[in-house]
Computed example of a mutant assay.
Amino acid sequence: MNIIFDNPHSALEGLLFDGMFIAAGGFGLCGIPELLIDAIREAGTKDLTIASNNCGVDDFGLGVLLKTKQIRKMISSYVGENAEFMRQYLSGELELEFNPQGTLAERMRAGGAGIAGFYTKTGVGTVVAEGKEQKTFNGETYVLETGIVADLSIVKAWKADTSGNLVFRKTARNFNPPAATCGRICVAEVEEIVPVGSLDPDHIHVPGIYVHRLLQGQHEKRIEQRTTRAAA
């Protein structure tokens, strides 16, 4: 079955609906599915719940969906680079569920592995644990976190073969692999698609069984905080 699509709009055709739950890969602006995000913006799909490490910046990444008021709720770890996020949250326009980064990654991984929930010490005694079941193991308190299963996963990889096996580079591995596995449907955008057999099986980070649609594109790869020094 051919899973390769010509552009992000065709790759998302028939998958988007108002009120849907999306898991998005990336860390900061590294490894974000920027082409698919722009296609969702252009589609106008609204009332979205999105699980992602962060919400991009004001004019790039998931921040473009905030600007158009398409996001109803964010499940995130870090939101400090987005002024519009802060404005919408403080004004009551945006719902926010904070998750520690490791907990959020594990919630995605658990959902993809068919695990309904798990106990963790992270967040005990903080607002993160409020309203959640807590249990004692070996004299220590743990909080129950639920696995995430999204309607759609959108991720960005470095390479893929024509069967959808994915390889990520460096920081892009932080959230993309667990995000890819926790969606009922996964759409991946990549920099390069190679023939089956071109990738070393030991170097594949997400098996193609998780990937339903694939597209190749050109990416801006914007740097979130550029720090330089004068030449010596």
Rank of each mutant, 00 (worst) to 15 (best):
V57H: 06
V64R: 13
Q101K: 07
I115K: 06
D151N: 08
L166H: 08
I22T: 05
L214V: 02
I193M: 10
N174C: 12
A160N: 09
D47H: 08
D200T: 13
A180T: 05
V64H: 08
K73D: 09
S163Y: 15
I37E: 08
I4K: 01
M20I: 11
M1Q: 12
A172G: 04
I37N: 00
V149T: 12
R184C: 02
T162N: 06
H212A: 07
G80N: 08
K170Q: 11
L29D: 06
E106L: 14
I115N: 01
G117I: 02
A129Y: 00
V190K: 06
Q216C: 13
E95G: 09
A172V: 00
H219K: 12
V143R: 07
F98I: 13
G92Y: 00
R72H: 06
A232R: 15
T103A: 10
Q218P: 01
D161A: 05
L48K: 02
K121Y: 09
E191K: 10
D18N: 14
G63S: 13
N82E: 07
H212K: 14
G125E: 06
L96E: 03
Q101H: 15
T227R: 11
A157N: 09
H205V: 04
E192N: 10
E34D: 13
I3C: 04
L214Y: 08
F27T: 13
L94Y: 04
N138P: 07
G131L: 02
C182K: 03
F21H: 09
P8G: 02
L12M: 06
F98W: 12
I75S: 00
F85G: 04
H212E: 03
N99K: 15
A105G: 15
I4W: 01
Q70P: 04
G61M: 02
T126Y: 00
I154F: 00
I22H: 13
I193S: 11
V211H: 02
D161L: 03
T228W: 11
G31H: 04
I148H: 09
Q134V: 04
S198N: 11
E81G: 05
N53K: 12
R173N: 03
V143G: 10
E81Q: 12
I71T: 10
Q218G: 12
F98H: 08
G147M: 14
V167M: 12
D200E: 15
F118K: 00
K221I: 07
L166P: 05
L166A: 04
I4Y: 06
G56A: 03
N54G: 12
